[in-house]
Amino acid sequence: MANPTLRAAFDAKKFIVAPGVFDMISAKVADGMGFDCLYGTGFGTVASALGVADAGIATYTDMVARMGRVAQGCTTPLIADADTGYGGLLNVRETVRGYEAAGITGIQIEDQEVPKKCGHTPGRRAIPADEMVLKIRVAVEARRSRDFLIVARTDARTGLGLEEAIRRGRMFGEAGADVVFVESPESEAEMVEIGRSLGQYRLLANNVEGGRTPILSAARLAEIGYAIAIYPAVGFLAVAAALERVFGHLKAQGDSNGLPAAESYGFGRICELMGFPDVWEFEKKWAQPER
């Protein structure tokens, strides 16, 4: 079931900051930090699970399994990437039903042609706006609970211009999307214009370090009309950098001695994070006498 606390936070006009999670370690770490929402990044999930580009290679089955496990292993509401809905209108219906049944709280679908591409990379092409409107209407009708949120993304800005992206955002909001996501505006001025033009809807800002869009503070985003900011890449970029440092040390030194304490989460902490204390208590309770 969808977690009702996320819709309640939106209704209370609370600005949402959502870190990108891509596996169970990143999800468990973020889950214990008091965020109102987690964002299940498609790029990070595909990279960590399959080791390939976020270019429409992962399937519905791949994503619902991974994101469902995250949702079930965390108490924080999860919005998860679902690319284009994995096909036509029937696929969208089944994707919404599957994500909701898996315990995910929100689904992000976009208006790209298949195969889709990461929103901050070149070569994206958008389907006709009317086709996406139908997808949104199907998604809204397919959900069991209104606490399951529909995030509708347009990738029109890069290929078709800001005016068309705003037009689509308005259409998506009118079609019933709970959150409108205009992907990759290229300046703060463009973001201000999106907020001015679409301020009647909940707007999402996608903050990708090194991407097309400037990263503004939460206060500034709220001021210009946004309701939620996602940070899909910050986690896996940090993990890759940390691994490169410690693996480089291991290759150069031949052991892990001498690593700064800051480079290690700590074996005891990771055991606790993964639930070993519960395992030990269970084993103590049900211990069998030696024969």
Rank of each mutant, 00 (worst) to 15 (best):
P115G: 07
P115T: 08
G123Y: 13
R124K: 15
R124D: 03
R124M: 11
R125T: 15
A126I: 14
A126Y: 12
D130V: 09
V133K: 03
L134C: 15
L134M: 15
I136E: 01
R137W: 13
E141N: 10
R146T: 14
F148K: 01
L149K: 01
L149H: 03
L162C: 07
I166Y: 03
I166R: 01
R167H: 14
R167S: 09
G173Y: 02
E174D: 14
A175M: 07
G176W: 01
A177E: 04
V179N: 01
V180D: 06
V182P: 02
S187R: 07
E190Y: 12
V192K: 13
R196Y: 11
R196A: 13
S197C: 14
S197I: 09
L198D: 05
L198K: 03
G199F: 07
G199Q: 09
G199L: 15
Q200I: 13
R202Q: 11
L203T: 06
L203E: 08
G210N: 06
G211F: 04
T213P: 00
P214M: 08
P214I: 10
I215T: 10
S217Q: 03
L221P: 07
A222N: 09
E223Q: 15
I224C: 05
Y226N: 08
A227S: 14
A227P: 02
A227I: 12
Y231F: 14
P232E: 06
A233L: 14
V234D: 13
A238G: 04
A241M: 07
A242D: 09
L243K: 02
R245T: 08
H249A: 04
L250S: 06
